[in-house]
Design a protein around this nucleic acid. Structure first.
Lengths: 211, 211
DNA sequence: TACACACTACACCGTGCAGTGTAGTTTTGC
DNA sequence: GCAAAACTACACTGCACGGTGTAGTGTGTA
């Protein structure tokens, strides 16, 4: 058959194929996150997805393409999550500190627990072992926040000269430290109290620097 | 022979052995940093060190131990560099902003260009593919800065409740962003002007938050 | 009924790599 | 000169893994 995704089939067949495809992506994501690109074998992915190895190759061609497909899905989810969180928490008129705290809290509970993005940041950014995707925008998430920060600055709630830098600082003061805390601990979980402390300290430091 | 490091030999022999050992560590460091743990073969390390593969195994036993040895050396150098930089730049009576700028600048020029620590941070922290060393203190560098920050707080130059957190924030606002910038760029180098901008922005933000 | 699609099971190939065994060479200390 | 240390060259094992080829199975669809 080769590339079942190319032509247009009857809905029933198509649905089955999509289900398998999703299962493979799920399994691949878990294993890549857990063990990294090199140490994750296609056989293991197939086994976890309860799918024959051949099906994996029929769907994705090779290991690299599968990895990129996983990455693409993760990027999508992440971007959607950030957009939602911005829209839901960073609302006008709300106390800025409360808004930012809620925003980060929401991001962590929505994205990190599935551990989706947490370790992928490390996997991708510089595992150096993972193959680099030629076409992908690592900028998107930041830009969403940048726009909102610009509005906040216009409203006098924040003060900065370089909005890009301000967003960078916000991210490292909150998300980066949370990610660090996560993969510092052996089991990959962080004490919720510690997490809250990191978040509040980060937000407060940010506000002292940029209010 | 097996493990030439165990018994005590005559100086000449020992010196030769040490030279080889150092050459192996150098080669291993370069290759691990460049390609990651998995993708670096022991054969490649031996070739680069201009040493027979057998010698590598005679010295280090296996690939993991070699990796840990490299890590240990990097840790030592890093710690010494930080101590020196603290002593040299974070002196009493100096304008705090100038001192912190010089401190970060010195760290980057002393540690990053050799790229020693830059990518190793990524290799170790969560490559997940790299083997974990059971006994190593990832805390040391931070603690050096913590002590100095505590003194600065006592002198009224800084204000914070949690000195550990303050140091974390300082690191992410400066070094983390520099490392990010480095491995964001394909060739592993950063425009010096951009680097300076990152440093000054980071230090200024830190001072706004903690002065 | 018959076809095509998605999939499985499984054998198979090539390769790269960690690690070993060994015989031989150079150097050093006595 | 001799013995041992340090090292080289090289062959070799074992294995895991990426990827392919193929024969066969079940199932919606025409």
């Amino acid at each position: 058959m080769e590339t079942p995704t190319s032509t247009w089939q009857t809905p029933a067949r198509r649905a089955q194929a999509e289900a398998k495809r999703a299962a493979i992506l799920d399994a691949a994501e878990e294993l890549f996150v857990a063990s990294g690109y090199e140490l994750t074998s296609v056989d293991a992915i197939a086994a976890r997805a309860k799918v024959s190895k051949r099906t994996v190759y029929d769907h994705f061609g090779d290991k690299q393409s599968l990895f990129w497909a996983v990455l693409g899905r993760v990027d999508e989810i992440l971007l959607a999550t950030i957009r939602t969180a911005v829209a839901a928490e960073l609302t006008d008129g709300r106390d800025l500190r409360e808004a930012l705290l809620a925003f980060v809290q929401r991001l962590t509970t929505d994205v990190l627990p599935s551990s989706t993005y947490a370790n992928f940041r490390h996997l991708v950014s510089r595992t150096s072992t993972a193959p680099k995707d030629p076409n992908r925008s690592t900028e998107a998430p930041e830009q969403v926040l940048e726009e909102r920060f610009a509005q906040l600055a216009a409203a006098g709630e924040l003060t900065f000269t370089d909005r890009r830098r301000a967003v960078q600082h916000f991210f490292v003061l909150t998300m980066s430290l949370l990610l660090d805390a996560i993969d510092q601990s052996p089991d990959g979980t962080v004490d919720p109290a510690e997490a809250r402390a990191i978040i509040t300290d980060g937000v407060d430091a940010f506000l002292r620097a940029y209010r």
